[in-house]
C-alpha cells in the first residue's frame, strides 16, 4: 500500500471513532472527566508542595507547572492516539483475535496502532496545552515562532519514545501470555516525567534520566522553551527517540514471528 492508502485507512478509522463517540456520548463525557480529574490531581500536587517550599531542585512553581503540563500533553496524545490500540493488542495476542489484523492487507503494526482514536484524550490535550500556556504567561515567556516549532517537534519525539516503550511492554505478551496488567507499568514509568531532571541523584539519575528515557522526554522540551535550546540535550533526545522506536518495533517483529495464534 502507498502512503496515500495508509492515510485513507487512518482517516476512515478516525471517522469511525468519531461516529462511535457520538453514539456513546455519556461514556465520552465520563472518560473526559476522568482524564481531567487526573490532570487536576497532578496540578494540585504541585500547588500543595509549593505552599510549603519555594523551589524543587531549582525549579519554581510555574516552571514545575510547565513541566507537568508538557508531560500531560504527551500522555494525553498517547491516550488519544495509541493507548487503547496497544492495550487491545495485548489482549488480542492472548485471545488469538490478533489473527484478524494479520489478515488485513497492510503493515500489521500500522493496522494495530491506528484502529481507534480516543477523542476524550485528544480533547484533553487542549487542557494540557492551556496549562503550559498559562505557566509560560506567568513566567513572562515570549517564545518566538521558531521556539514553538522546536517545542512541538520535541514533544513529538517524546510521543514516539512513549509509543516505543509501550509497544515494547505490550509486545512482551508474545512471550509471556499471563502478563495482564503489565501495560500499567507505562503509567508508573512515565510518572517520572513530571519531575525535574535535577531532582535525580546517584543511582536514580543513572536509571531514570540516562538509561530509561522517562525524565528527558518532558525535561528537554520544557527547558528548551524556558531557557532556549541546548543542542546537546536535543541531540541526545533525537538519538533516544530513534533507539526506543527501534527497540519497540524490533521486539514487536520478533514477537510476530513467534506468534502462532491461540487455540482456535
Amino acid at each position: 500500500m502507498s502512503f496515500l492508502n495508509y492515510l485513507r485507512v487512518w482517516l476512515a478509522c478516525a471517522r469511525y471513532s468519531t461516529v462511535r463517540t457520538m453514539m456513546f456520548r455519556f461514556d465520552f463525557i465520563m472518560w473526559s472527566l476522568v482524564e481531567l480529574f487526573w490532570m487536576t490531581v497532578n496540578i494540585l500536587l504541585v500547588s500543595v508542595i509549593y505552599r510549603h517550599t519555594r523551589e524543587i531542585a531549582g525549579w519554581t512553581q510555574y516552571q514545575m507547572l510547565l513541566l507537568v503540563g508538557t508531560s500531560m500533553i504527551m500522555q494525553r496524545l498517547m491516550m488519544g492516539l495509541f493507548w487503547s490500540n496497544l492495550f487491545e493488542l495485548g489482549r488480542n495476542i492472548r485471545t488469538g483475535q490478533f489473527d484478524f489484523f494479520l489478515a488485513q492487507p497492510g503493515n500489521p503494526l500500522f493496522m494495530v496502532s491506528t484502529r481507534k482514536l480516543d477523542l476524550d484524550g485528544l480533547l484533553n490535550v487542549l487542557v494540557a496545552v492551556s496549562v503550559v500556556a498559562y505557566s509560560a504567561h506567568q513566567l513572562g515567556l515570549h517564545p518566538g515562532f521558531g521556539d514553538i516549532v522546536t517545542y512541538i517537534l520535541l514533544i513529538l519525539c517524546g510521543l514516539i519514545i512513549e509509543y516505543g516503550t509501550l509497544l515494547l511492554i505490550v509486545s512482551l505478551t508474545f512471550w509471556i501470555v499471563g502478563s495482564q496488567g503489565i501495560e500499567g507499568s507505562y503509567f508508573t514509568l512515565f510518572e517520572f516525567s513530571r519531575l525535574p531532571k535535577e531532582a535525580f541523584r546517584g543511582a536514580s539519575n543513572v536509571i531514570f534520566v540516562w538509561l530509561l528515557p522517562v525524565v528527558l522526554v518532558s525535561n528537554v522540551p520544557s527547558k528548551s522553551i524556558m531557557h532556549g535550546v541546548d543542542a546537546r540535550y536535543v541531540l541526545w533526545l533525537l538519538g533516544v527517540t530513534l533507539l526506543w522506536l527501534l527497540i519497540g518495533t524490533t521486539v514487536f517483529r520478533r514477537g510476530l514471528r513467534r506468534y502462532a495464534s491461540a487455540s482456535s
Binding site: 508542595i49 517550599t53 508508573t188 510518572e191 535535577e198
Partner: peptide
C-alpha cells in the same frame, strides 16, 4: 517504583 517517585519528589522539596 511509585515510592521511588515520592522519595525523589519529596527529597527535592525538602532540600534547604
Amino acid at each position: 517504583i511509585h515510592l521511588a517517585y515520592a522519595f525523589i519528589l519529596w527529597g527535592a522539596a525538602f532540600a534547604g
